[in-house]
Amino acid sequence: MLSALLILGGIGLVLGGILGWAAIRFRVEDDPLVEKIDAILPQTQCGQCGFPGCKPYAEAIAKGEADINKCPPGGDDGIRRMAELLGVEPKPLGEGLAHKPKSVAVIDENTCIGCTLCIQACPVDAIVGAAKQMHTIIEAQCTGCELCLPPCPVDCISMVVIREEIDSWKWRYPVYMLKQAA
């Protein structure tokens, strides 16, 4: 009886030791969850989710304080990937949020008075200009967040939908309906 207990206990100890060693030896260095969520978010920094940027939203999701369906620029695809990452069910975009086609802001250079207000608003420093000088937006860096629209005192910024160009054109998903095949 005693020897059985000892043997079993011994085996348990040895195996436990091995497991513990393996856990340390083969530990996978993982991105913290926040980073992983942040990597899925589109980095538009638009704040439509109700947080002052993508990172704070990612932090809130990681803490379980925010839902995963609050990011319109990320779209359904983003929600799906987030759901996969967190092991929850995907859901439709939250109420009052709508996905818009990807756009960039353009400043009407004749109207711009050079007030620098939009520069301060832009989360990614995509606007260049100096006080009382006409401002312009670097298209490649604009994320389309629309944060520069409200501060403009002369309403000279407008959003332009990015058109599909030959070099950004994508092959379409081949659609054929099996169910209508005849």
């Binding site: 942040d38 978010l41 589109p42 920094q45 990172k55 860096q141 092959w171 081949p174």
Partner: peptide
């Protein structure tokens, strides 16, 4: 399907690069 998948993968890589750049610029700001 292969063409679709390839161009989708390329587009995603580009999107990812753009997002990374935006994140960096935002963090710097």
């Amino acid at each position: 399907y292969y063409r679709f998948a390839k161009s989708e993968i390329w587009a995603r890589e580009q999107e990812k690069a753009a997002a990374d750049a935006a994140r960096a610029r935002h963090e710097f700001r």
